[in-house]
Every structure is written in structure tokens, then in C-alpha cells.
């Protein structure tokens, strides 16, 4: 019997009282694969875990794949408003959500938060033009503001709930316009303003089934896809014309 020693060990660990002493933080997420199908309207992701003791603060960060983004600013030229200046940022998280059991500013000093990039304002966003901080600031702020307005950046304190004092859970909402790719869910355990433990879990968001087939076709066989799109439209117009002649 191979199982007997394992069960014995587990029992021993329980007897010893704190099996997680070696591991102060254990976490997981409800779905490791978010499938986007035709009925997808966004999803609620459950992030949960357990601590070794009944004290500490939890900060959960879910991040989407990085992308290059351009921020444009309108200015008044000869009396009309037109796009004028622009700044491109190199690695912008396409999705970024922070959840914590109390305001992050109360959990850790600003320096620590900045180092761990906790809070959208602390994201390190490098721009391609190597513009200095003062010049880049309005563009940076606009990027975060627009992403937040689109539901892609979220910061919620008090969203992490403790059950008892060693189990915690939180919901992160992925809206319907999330980009596909590899996401990460990071969970930080803070005690006395410092990180005691952290765990990162990957998460995949992908299109499946019909949505996947259309997307692949549009990208791999673009000319053929375009031709099909035109033919479908011509056919639909013709069918309607026939149907209405009878009517």
C-alpha cells in the first residue's frame, strides 16, 4: 500500500496543528480557462485561498496580456479640434484589476506598493519616445482613465472577504470586451506593511468553437474571408429582393 504513509503523513500534519506553516499562503482560481463562445457576456472569476494564521492583508491582482497602446490628444488648430500629440506606451496591461480587503494605502507604504506595481497609478508604463515623466504624465493618466472607463482597469478595496479568519475569497469581473491571451492572478499576503508571501496562477482567456473558427479564418485566410463576406452580403440582398417581390 502506497497510500498508507501519505495518509499517515497528512494526519500527522493535522495533529501538529499548522500544516501551512511551511506555506503561509495557498491560493487558486475558479477557472483556469475562460472560454469565449457566442453567448459570452463577461465572466466572474473567483480567486480564493487560505492563510496559515488569522492575521494579514490580502491583495489580489489580475493582469491581462501586455500590448502597445497609443494615446492621442486633441488640440485646437486654426479653431478646430484635431488629434495632435500622441504617445505610444510599450507594455500596457490590457486588463488590470486590484482587489484588497481594505484600501491598499492602509496596507503597505507607498514605496512598497510602487515596487510591486499595486494600483493602476503604480504601473510602470514605458513609452517608446523616451519622453520624460512630466511630458508623459498627462498621457499616462489619460490611458488609466480611459481603461478604467472601459471597465478594463478596476480597483476595489474591501472586495476581498474573509471567511473565518484563515480563508479568503474575492470576485474579479472580466467584462465582455477583454482581450484574449494569457492572464495572471497574483495574490500577495501582507503583514505589518511588508510582503510575507505571494503566489501567481496563470489563467487563459481564449475563443472557442464558432467564434474561434471565424477569428482564425479572418486572420489566416484574410482575402478568402473578405471574398466570402462580400458574397454573403450580395446573396442576402438578392434573397431579400426576391422575397419582397412576392410579398
Amino acid at each position: 500500500m502506497i497510500r498508507a504513509p501519505a495518509i499517515g503523513l497528512a494526519f500527522l500534519a493535522v495533529l501538529c496543528g499548522s500544516p501551512a506553516r511551511a506555506q503561509p499562503l495557498v491560493t487558486d482560481i475558479s477557472d483556469h480557462l475562460v472560454a469565449i463562445t457566442s453567448s459570452y457576456t463577461g465572466t466572474e472569476l473567483l480567486v480564493f485561498g487560505a492563510l496559515d494564521r488569522g492575521d494579514g492583508d490580502i491583495v489580489v491582482i489580475v493582469r491581462g496580456p501586455a500590448e502597445r497602446m497609443t494615446v492621442r490628444r486633441k488640440d485646437r488648430i486654426f479653431g478646430v479640434w484635431a488629434n495632435f500629440d500622441s504617445l505610444t506606451f510599450r507594455a500596457v496591461p490590457s486588463f488590470y484589476a486590484v482587489a484588497s480587503n481594505r484600501p491598499v494605502a492602509d496596507i503597505a507604504p507607498a514605496r512598497t506598493l510602487a515596487r510591486l506595481q499595486i494600483g493602476a497609478a503604480n504601473l510602470r508604463l514605458a513609452n517608446v519616445a523616451a519622453a520624460d515623466d512630466a511630458a508623459a504624465k498627462p498621457f499616462r493618466e489619460a490611458l488609466i482613465r480611459l481603461k478604467t472607463a472601459g471597465g478594463l482597469y478596476q480597483e476595489k478595496s474591501g472586495q476581498v472577504a474573509f471567511l473565518g479568519n484563515q480563508l479568503f475569497r474575492t470576485h474579479v469581473t472580466l467584462p465582455s470586451n477583454v482581450p484574449i491571451g494569457t492572464y495572471t492572478a497574483e495574490v500577495f499576503l501582507f503583514r505589518d506593511g511588508g510582503v510575507v508571501a505571494a503566489q501567481t496562477t496563470p489563467l487563459f482567456v481564449n475563443k472557442l468553437g464558432f467564434e474561434r473558427a471565424v477569428f482564425d479564418w479572418a486572420h489566416r485566410h484574410a482575402p478568402l474571408y473578405g471574398l466570402a463576406a462580400v458574397l454573403i452580403a450580395l446573396f442576402a440582398g438578392w434573397i431579400a429582393a426576391i422575397a419582397f417581390r412576392k410579398g
Partner: peptide, 28 residues
């Protein structure tokens, strides 16, 4: 349509089909 699909991959046939169901009837 062909140019946008081939060069920019920005034609969504699902969206187009839903729109055109209404459009062909509206045009008649």
C-alpha cells in the same frame, strides 16, 4: 469590404450578418 478584410482584418461577419438582416428588409 474586401480591402478592409484582407489588409486590416477588421470585418466582423457575425456583426455584418446581424446588421444586414435588418438592412436588406429596410432597403426594400
Amino acid at each position: 469590404t474586401f480591402i478592409h478584410a484582407a489588409a486590416n482584418k477588421t470585418v466582423d461577419v457575425v456583426l455584418a450578418m446581424l446588421l444586414l438582416v435588418g438592412a436588406v428588409v429596410g432597403a426594400q
